[in-house]
Design a protein around this nucleic acid. Structure first.
Lengths: 131, 131
DNA sequence: CTTGACCCTCCAGCTACTGGAAGCCCCATA
DNA sequence: TATGGGGCTTCCAGTAGCTGGAGGGTCAAG
């Protein structure tokens, strides 16, 4: 199967698939003409990777998850540890963003947004946080 | 004022301050020995930048906000547009992350996390989404 | 005079791709 | 058989926003 069709099936752009080969996540054989000849197992791997990335796992996490996926004697413990750590980081990021959103939405609400120069947004950015 | 003290006062690492000079956000003069000689206005700018970055504005946003801040004839409208756009993007990102978190927390909850290989997390990653 | 804390520049690397140039390869049609 | 168009290849460079490190100058204290 050529890269274009694999891109269709896996939902990943061809460029990304080549990149994943570069960094050793997949290793499709080549046809006589030099084209990558993807096997079903490669397509499965790539789809797995696409779904893992869509859940926000880093490439290194994906590499580890892939290894665990392929290891039929793995302990679900090891998978759970990765996922839980990732979940913790996501929650931290959500909290950060929510704090930004809360601050910003107040500022946007309070800014007249007209032709006058007075602006609570700039005021906030110019003022050191209260000690 | 030397870079170390500016770093203390602004909360930005010296490396970051040099980088901001590189990309033209500040432009401190130099002493005879080549050291950067920051003025109060530079420190104010850097603090402004630190607070803007902490609210998640991109460097380009910061550049524009800085220009507006220094332009005493600005229209608050222009500031508000930048902030509102940014707020929208933050909200989109929060929504993305919340979707990931929701999926992941179910998976983590349902995974035994013991020595057995069965793992709903890997199952989910291996299974195409229902059509 | 030496020590140690600063400061300088320049180069490289991080994440996870993405765009583009230059050049084969394959198939269909005129 | 020539040609045109699409798909494939590699390699290089760039994105955002820093950060680490090498190699070296500067300054104040002891």
């Amino acid at each position: 199967m050529n890269i274009g069709e694999v891109a269709q099936q896996s939902g990943l752009p061809p460029k990304t698939i080549r990149y994943y080969e570069d960094i050793g996540l997949v290793n499709p054989p080549r046809d006589a003409n030099g084209y990558r000849a993807f096997r079903d197992s490669d397509v499965h791997k790539l789809s797995f990777l696409g779904r893992s990335r869509a859940l926000g796992f880093t490439i290194e996490d994906c590499r580890n998850l892939l290894a665990l996926w392929e290891d039929k004697t793995r302990a679900s413990h090891d998978v759970r540890v990765i996922a839980k750590e990732h979940l913790t980081q996501i929650e931290a990021k959500i909290a950060d963003l929510q704090a930004m959103r809360d601050t910003l939405s107040v500022l946007v609400r309070d800014c007249a947004g007209d032709q006058r120069p007075d602006c609570p947004i700039l005021q906030k950015l110019e003022t050191p946080p209260a000690p």
